[in-house]
Design a protein around this nucleic acid. Structure first.
Lengths: 117, 117
DNA sequence: TGTAGTGTGTAGTATATACTACACAACATG
DNA sequence: CATGTTGTGTAGTATATACTACACACTACA
């Protein structure tokens, strides 16, 4: 597992190869933070930014916000809100699924999504 | 929905009826915080305390920690950790379940719990 | 009537979070 | 060789979080 900073830098560098819009400075301006701040984050000198900044970064880099948030040690606020509305049931479900193999959870998600409920 | 403070005060008061160990001071000492701090929390003058203090309080009052944490606007760190390990799948599942009726989610939890997977 | 226990008011503190502002050296490009 | 663009270094700030320390007034009761 790479850190948040490493992951972002790698992804941005890849995009930068083919497009000058992905220089550190341009991206920083696009997501509305100081270039030096983004620099420090990418090098792990500063901890990951706040949720809104991570979301902007994810959008800019074409990444999944939930994945980036996870790398930053965070869980999306909208998910937290959903859990907090029914804390008991969601707590139980999530703890139950903790050690389930990937395919089992995937099957579950698919069944729920396909509306067999 | 009551606030965190109101909820705690009500519950503690009920217990205090039959047992002097549930005075504000005694509970505060038991969970290792200053009585004045707990007083302010119960009256909503201060925001809810941190997760560890909420857990101690839940234990002391015989309440569900996840419910108390939810009232405090928090989600248990162990749940967040589980989600962060597989952010995509859990994000999708939780958002999918957001508007599901209680009985559907309950059925799902039961099926998972009973190991039909 | 003193003393033990009750809740509360005032006035702080330490640490973390989430950044900004600006200067600077290296490099490239016209 | 000046101009623009690159990433980075230094030195801060504002706000939130999670509390402590201690004094005070009131009540119960022995």
């Amino acid at each position: 597992m790479s850190t948040f900073g490493e992951y972002v830098r790698k992804r941005r560098m890849e995009l930068q190869e083919g497009d000058p819009r992905f220089s550190l400075r341009k991206v920083a301006v696009a997501i509305d933070v100081e270039p030096s701040y983004l620099s420090k984050i990418e090098r792990g000198e500063q901890p990951p930014p706040g949720e809104q900044t991570i979301r902007a970064l994810a959008k800019e880099l074409g990444e999944d916000p939930d994945v980036l948030l996870a790398l930053a040690g965070k869980v999306s606020d909208d998910l937290q809100k959903i859990i907090r509305k029914r804390p008991r049931i969601f707590a139980e479900l999530i703890r139950e699924l903790k050690d389930m193999p990937e395919h089992a959870v995937l099957r579950l998600v698919r069944e729920v999504r396909d509306g067999k409920w």
